[in-house]
């Protein structure tokens, strides 16, 4: 248990630093940035206490907001996907989730892609609608969501594949 906790704290710090120092300066085509920091939420242990999980996600979002001067948009999006994660887990992994035996390193590529796609898209829709904060610019929000989601999903899949331990 202690081991898992320290792994998650290190992941928290490393992902925030990567996000703040590298990913926010990419500005592909002027405005497209990936947000791979939500891998922390995606890879958080399934069995853990939900109260701790939601609080940790809020803290993650708030740390990002502090660095990016963005009010509370990251915190809102993170808390939301942390709350709905069980539903997404059930949808993507079906019955395996019921038995609480998910190991993120050993699941099939297809269901992992579904899982990350759903999380990222939800997160980005909330993030950009709060950032733009105007109903009349809905097309702009959707456009930003689409491009940034593709970038984030690609980057997240690559990171999870590179850093996964092969089951022995």
């Amino acid at each position: 248990m202690n081991n898992i906790f320290s792994v998650d704290s290190i992941r928290f710090i490393v992902l925030v630093l990567i996000q703040v120092l590298v990913c926010n300066n990419i500005n592909f085509f002027g405005y497209i940035n990936p947000y791979p920091y939500i891998l922390f939420i995606a890879l958080f242990p399934v069995k853990s206490n939900r109260v701790v999980f939601i609080l940790a996600s809020f803290l993650l979002g708030l740390t990002n907001d502090m660095f990016l001067d963005s009010g509370g948009i990251h915190a809102a999006a993170c808390v939301f996907i942390a709350y709905v994660r069980p539903v997404i887990l059930k949808f993507s992994f079906g019955t395996i989730y019921e038995h609480h035996t998910i190991k993120f390193a050993s699941i099939a590529f297809g269901s992992k892609l579904t899982y990350i796609t759903l999380l990222v898209t939800l997160h980005h829709i909330i993030l950009f609608s709060l950032q733009v904060f105007s109903v009349s610019k809905i097309i702009f929000v959707l456009q930003k969501t689409l491009f940034s989601s593709m970038f984030t999903i690609l980057l997240s899949m690559i990171i999870t594949i590179i850093f996964s331990q092969k089951p022995k």
Binding site: V51, I54, L55, F58, G61, L62, D65, G71, G72, I73, A75, A76, V79, F80, A82, Y83, L130, F133
Partner: peptide
């Protein structure tokens, strides 16, 4: 808890 934290973040926004 979700509702509380979500409203705090919306307030900041």
């Amino acid at each position: 808890l979700f509702l509380l934290l979500f409203s705090i973040s919306i307030l900041f926004t």
